[in-house]
């Protein structure tokens, strides 16, 4: 929490990360936030306030579907599941991301 700038994410990357976490299987919002933070070794901190609008946006575009189920804590929770379109979208996004990162890396590498 001390260093908020670290946690700010590039626009659009949150969607990609959410889709990525769902590749392994359906999950609910709280888990998704934790998985992202955990997998990034706590570099990325998900601002929980923007997680839910993001999930709704993905659902609306048909990339995820949702259902109510029971969580590992034995609580009612809303689970999100990747659709075929979502899987395709994730591939596209990932490819694009790699391209951009590689390009930026080249620029940074050439600059003294």
């Amino acid at each position: 929490m001390a260093d908020r700038t670290n946690s700010e994410m590039v626009q659009g990357t949150l969607d990609m990360l959410i889709l990525r976490t769902l590749v392994t299987g359906p999950a609910h919002g709280h888990t998704i936030a934790h998985v992202i933070e955990h997998m990034s070794e706590n570099v990325l901190e998900v601002e929980q306030g923007s997680l839910y609008p993001g999930l709704h946006r993905l659902e609306h575009r048909g990339w995820v579907t949702s259902y109510w189920g029971t969580s590992e804590n034995n609580r009612k929770a809303k689970f999100y599941k990747l659709t075929a379109a979502g899987r395709k979208q994730l591939t596209t996004e990932t490819d694009r991301w790699r391209l951009v990162v590689a390009a930026i890396g080249r620029i940074l590498g050439e600059t003294p």
């Binding site: 919002g29 709280h30 888990t31 839910y52 709704h56 969580s71 609580r75 009612k76 929770a77 809303k78």
Partner: peptide, 16 residues
């Protein structure tokens, strides 16, 4: 209402 329930559920997990 669905969203409210979802946020409730999130808070419950966080509190846990």
């Amino acid at each position: 209402a669905d969203l409210s329930a979802e946020l409730e559920s999130h808070l419950a997990h966080e509190i846990d």
